[in-house]
């Protein structure tokens, strides 16, 4: 059992150890979907939602696996849970709100291969979070992911107008910017430790 307070779990997951900028989880959507501010926000919201559902289910399944004495099936079970959660969320959103479904579009199915989700499930198991801590951890990780994505999208929209040398266009300059962003997030170190 981990006795970290809910507040420190949240601050830790969203700012101090930001999933994208400190753990390098979810780099693919971070580099791929951060071109426009509007899509970045929606992607962040979708990921946060899937994280919350996946965290709850992963917690339940982990209890079941421990009870059955087959912890080596954890990885396989988690990936199946995440894939089915994404599928389920897709159907649910389609049923409840056509407008939201159209807005999220291709991003929903892509979340399955987002390593931030699997990383979240594995971290919460390794750190032995209880159910409330797991859910807050998911919320914090989602908020941190959205924050990084939105910041990056804002910078990249400005970058479109800047004159960047030809060699550095595309991935190279994006990575450099991400590096600076990551450095600035280190300023949060020590926050929420108490």
């Amino acid at each position: 059992m981990n006795d970290a307070s809910l507040w420190s779990v949240f601050i830790n997951a969203s700012l101090v150890n930001n999933f994208v900028l400190a753990y390098f989880l979810g780099i693919c959507p971070f580099l791929g979907v951060s071109g426009k501010l509007a899509t970045a926000t929606r992607m962040g919201a979708a990921v946060t939602f899937v994280m919350l559902v996946a965290a709850g289910s992963a917690y339940a399944v982990n209890l079941l696996l421990e009870w059955a004495g087959v912890p080596y099936l954890r990885l396989i079970c988690y990936i199946v849970i995440i894939a089915s959660t994404v599928q389920f969320v897709e159907m649910l959103v389609k049923k409840l709100s056509r407008a939201l479904f159209r807005a999220l579009g291709i991003f929903l199915p892509l979340i399955t291969t987002n390593c931030a989700i699997l990383g979240l499930a594995l971290f919460q198991t390794n750190r032995e979070y209880d159910l409330a801590q797991s859910l807050v951890f998911a919320l914090g990780a989602g908020a941190g992911f959205t924050l990084a994505l939105v910041l990056m999208a804002g910078i990249r929209e400005k970058l479109e107008l800047a004159s960047v040398p030809d060699v550095a266009r595309g991935a190279a300059i994006t990575l450099m910017v991400a590096g600076i962003l990551s450095l600035s997030f280190m300023g949060f170190a020590g926050l929420g430790a108490g």
Partner: peptide, 19 residues
């Protein structure tokens, strides 16, 4: 060796390869 360095190194290597 900090997280930021990972981004910088990969960015620099990509620059070199593009060049």
């Amino acid at each position: 060796v900090l997280p930021g360095g990972g981004f910088f190194t990969l960015g620099a290597l990509l620059l070199l390869i593009n060049h």
